[in-house]
Design a protein around this nucleic acid. Structure first.
Length: 615
RNA sequence: GCUGUUGUAGCUCAGUGGUAGAGCACGUCCUUGGUAAGGACGAGGUCGAGGGUUCAAAUCCCUCCAACAGCUCCA
């Protein structure tokens, strides 16, 4: 059974709960305004030409950054400024000073900024020689209101050194404030009156963790008061769609401190949502000839040593689980913690030999080898499903007639994410991938990649999620990170490129973004506040079949190496549901027969949201 | 992990050193031919955890934990 969509494509029966008129309406919902999404600090300098192309609003915001710096200096003259670019919806300036800015200071700074705007200071460009620039920085004059003996402009000095020889060095002056700056700026500070400071945070100089820690104040600025107000209205609207807020209101999921950070408890309502999606994808998988499998949540360390995930990715995995008797033994032997860790991380000489032989070169160095009686094995919460699926493929001899073998599982994996990076459903420590691994011949790669992509496209189109882009991750030829032989890479990259081109959506090729084992295609979806989330992914892999010594018998009755394709159209159920909640703003497409609807009066508060969710 | 902010009832929040509060939600009863109806009464809190200062701490100080924003990272 299928229903028509506006694209005229058949809609899978498993989304039978989708009311066509609702789907249509939702698909046309305009994407909400983007909240401040800081542009990643580019490690490459912009050329003067690129700078000259700054749009009017970027000019205004950049000037606002200078005005904010001026205001901060009037209040705290010791401040040392680093970097103050315009960003989407606003600007920031990074600086270092004794006083720690808190949001309570914003009012003071804004008041000072307003004064500066009223003073209508002229922004004046001055070309200066490298020597003069350095002298001004030494005296503390650059990024200051006056000379500041004993307080040289340290960051400006560094920035001057980064300006290539022969390039014009310039500064801009407004009032007493002189800053090293290539511009461009607005003519007068009077233009910068619709400004509001939004947040303060820490940053690192040049985005480098090892460099100085700076304070960063963010602000937003627009040409008119109306636009500024509209911006804050949009932010409010975006907040209402936040999946964490809706998740609580609609009782979709719960995160409990006692269970742990980043570990999702799916409550009955959320389980309905997730189950519908799983049914939907299961149906598509069945159509495309996948086989469903189930595998356990843990596996032995040696499995991940063979795959190469341990200890290479050790920092982003949960620690090993050591069996009681083994633990008692090492305690009895008086092992220190460091020694236990080393014994867990070691690899046997035999396994090292096997891996190196299979790869035809040294992929595991001798320093990781420990004598067998020193090795301590344990288990690990699985950080990915591939090794388990590989073992299923390898559990019996395979003929080319069976290929491609497509093994699918809603596989739950666990990864150790930094605490500051956790975010509702979109960044978690335990999540379920709609994972599958395809084992195919070299010649089947292109067709299989194409099949995977069409699956992702069906999923996204069915749900009306059209604000996405496609990223083809290619290898960086200069990097040693990428293993495998160049011809295979070329072939796989070409297959990915060609497959992406058939999608009919813009895609970018990004050298250096490939996984170490092969090229990949990612679907990146923008959420309601402009953050991009990588959801679906398709990756070609030539490495794991080698490490696990996989083979099949070809028509020539000889053994051949299969190619693996990893793919997950949703990415993870958690992240996808998070993005989906915001996409639909909680107005999930449901039909009359949906369990979300038929609720007795007693549970009025419960059914309310499915009929008339909070707007 | 780093910087900052926040943490009080199921939810949203008020409460600046002196007996723990409001609205909504919840329970019982009454009213009411109807989809967030009205009324009466009621229940619900070691004020994130632990320590300290004080005659006295939700409130001041310290240490943790967690959430949020940003940075950094992300197979």
């Amino acid at each position: 059974m299928s229903v028509a969509t506006r694209e005229g494509e058949a809609k899978p029966a498993c989304l039978s709960l989708l009311r066509p008129e609702m789907a249509l309406k939702l698909a046309h919902r305009p994407s909400r305004a983007r909240m401040r999404a800081p542009l990643p600090m580019s490690t490459e300098r912009k050329t003067l030409d690129q700078r000259a192309q700054m749009s009017d609003i970027e000019r205004l915001r950049h000037s606002c950054a200078h005005i904010m710096a001026t205001a901060i200096l009037r209040l705290w003259p010791d401040a040392q400024f680093a970097y103050g670019p315009p960003i989407e919806n606003g600007f920031y300036y990074d600086f270092q000073m004794q006083h720690r800015i808190t949001p309570d200071d914003f009012e003071k700074i804004e008041a000072e900024m307003k004064k500066i705007s009223k003073e209508n200071q002229k922004f004046e460009w001055k070309g200066i020689s490298r020597e003069d620039a350095k002298a001004m920085a030494e005296s503390g004059r650059l990024g200051g209101l006056s000379e500041r003996p004993g307080n040289p402009s340290i960051f400006k000095l560094d920035l001057i050194d980064k300006i290539p020889e022969g390039e014009q060095i310039s500064c801009f002056q407004n009032g007493d404030f002189i800053d090293l700056c290539a511009g461009p700026h607005v003519g007068y500070s009077g233009k910068c009156k619709n400004v509001k400071l939004t947040s303060v945070s820490a940053s690192f100089y040049m985005g480098d963790e090892t460099k100085a820690s700076l304070q960063r104040v963010y602000g937003t600025a627009f040409e008119s008061k109306e636009e500024l107000e509209a911006h804050f209205v949009r932010l409010e609207e975006a907040k209402k769609r936040d999946h964490r807020k809706l998740g609580k209101e609609l009782k979709l999921f719960h995160i409990d401190e006692d269970v742990g950070q980043g570990l999702i408890l799916w409550t009955p309502n959320g389980a309905i949502l997730r189950q519908e999606l799983q049914n939907f994808i299961s149906e598509e998988l069945r159509k495309q000839g996948y086989s469903q499998v189930f595998t356990p949540h843990i596996g032995k360390l040696s499995l991940y040593k063979t795959s190469g995930h341990f200890p290479y990715y050790k920092d982003s995995q949960f620690a090993a689980i050591v069996e009681n008797d083994d633990l008692a033994k090492v305690i009895h032997e008086g092992c220190g913690c460091g020694e236990v860790m080393a014994r867990l991380g070691g690899i046997s000489a035999k396994l090292r030999q096997q891996l190196n032989d299979r790869a035809g070169k040294e992929v595991v160095s001798e320093e990781n080898v420990l004598p067998d009686d020193q090795l301590l094995d344990g288990f690990m919460l699985k950080p990915m499903n591939c090794p388990h699926h590989i073992k299923i493929f390898d559990s019996q001899p395979r003929s080319y007639r069976e290929l491609p073998v497509r093994l699918a599982e809603f596989g739950t994996v666990y990864r150790w994410e930094q605490s500051g990076e956790l975010n509702g459903l979109t960044r978690v420590r335990g999540f379920t991938q709609d994972d599958a691994h395809l084992f195919c011949t070299e010649d089947q790669v292109a067709a299989e990649v194409l099949g995977c992509l069409s699956l992702v496209k069906i999923v996204l189109n069915t749900l009306g999620m059209t604000d996405y882009r496609v990223r083809v991750g290619l290898r960086d030829p200069d990097s040693s990170k990428f293993t495998g032989n160049p011809e295979q890479w070329d072939k796989a990259e070409e297959a990915c490129r060609a497959a992406a081109a058939t999608l009919g959506v813009p895609f970018t090729e990004e050298p250096g973004e490939a996984a170490f084992y092969g090229p990949k295609i990612d679907f990146v979806i923008k959420d309601v506040i402009g953050r991009e989330w990588q959801l679906g992914t398709v990756q070609v892999d030539y490495v794991l079949p080698v490490r696990f010594d996989l083979s099949y018998i070809g028509s020539d009755n000889k053994s051949h190496r299969p190619v693996m394709i990893h793919r997950a159209p949703f990415g993870s159920m958690e992240r996808f549901c998070g993005v989906l909640i915001e996409h639909f703003a909680g107005h999930f497409p449901t039909a009359r027969q949906s369990p979300l609807h038929a609720r007795p009066r007693r549970e009025r508060s419960y059914c309310r949201w499915s009929l008339c969710p909070p707007c």
